Amino acid sequence: MRLAGIQQFLKERHLPFQYWEEDDCGSIEFDHRGLHYHIWEFPEPERGAQSNVRIAGRSEEFGDNYEEAILGILKTREEF
């Protein structure tokens, strides 16, 4: 299972989400307060992720320690 920390956070906050895994890459999508959020991992050798959790209307890419960075954003946003 990939993105385990993010999945745990969403479960603790009772935020329903969809998770799937393909080619050793995890993807999470969830809706909150009418906005759609995504977290998509990139495969090796460019391991990283793309997400719009900071600003719902804009995706950004995360490199090293991407799960920790995305989880940090989720934890600091009051609406989550």
Rank of each mutant, 00 (worst) to 15 (best):
L10P: 12
G34F: 03
Y37M: 02
P16Q: 11
W20H: 12
G72D: 02
E41D: 05
L35I: 06
H36Y: 04
G5N: 13
N52Q: 02
Q18D: 08
I39L: 01
D64W: 12
I6W: 07
D64G: 11
E67C: 10
F9G: 06
G48M: 05
L3G: 09
D24S: 13
L3W: 11
R58C: 02
Q50W: 05
A69K: 15
G34T: 06
A56N: 01
E61W: 01
Y19R: 07
R54A: 10
G34W: 04
E78M: 09
L3M: 09
R13P: 05
E21K: 14
N65G: 14
S51H: 00
L71C: 04
E60A: 06
E79V: 13
E22G: 01
E61P: 00
C25V: 12
G26E: 06
I73S: 00
W40Y: 14
S27L: 02
Y19F: 15
G26T: 03
S59F: 02
F62Q: 04
F80W: 13
E61C: 07
D24P: 00
N52L: 01
N65V: 00
Y37S: 07
G48C: 06
N65S: 05
L3Q: 10
G57P: 01
Y37L: 08
G57W: 03
R13K: 15
E78G: 02
L35Y: 13
D31S: 14
S27E: 09
A49F: 11
Y37D: 03
A49C: 10
F30Y: 15
E68W: 09
D31R: 14
P16L: 06
A49P: 09
L71R: 01
T76P: 00
R33Y: 13
L10A: 08
D31V: 11
F17R: 04
G48H: 05
L15P: 02
I28S: 00
Q7R: 15
Q18C: 08
E44R: 11
E29T: 14
H32K: 15
G5P: 05
P45A: 05
P45T: 07
I39R: 05
Q7P: 00
D64Y: 12
H32F: 09
G57M: 06
G72N: 12
E22M: 08
D24L: 12
Y66F: 15
F30E: 06
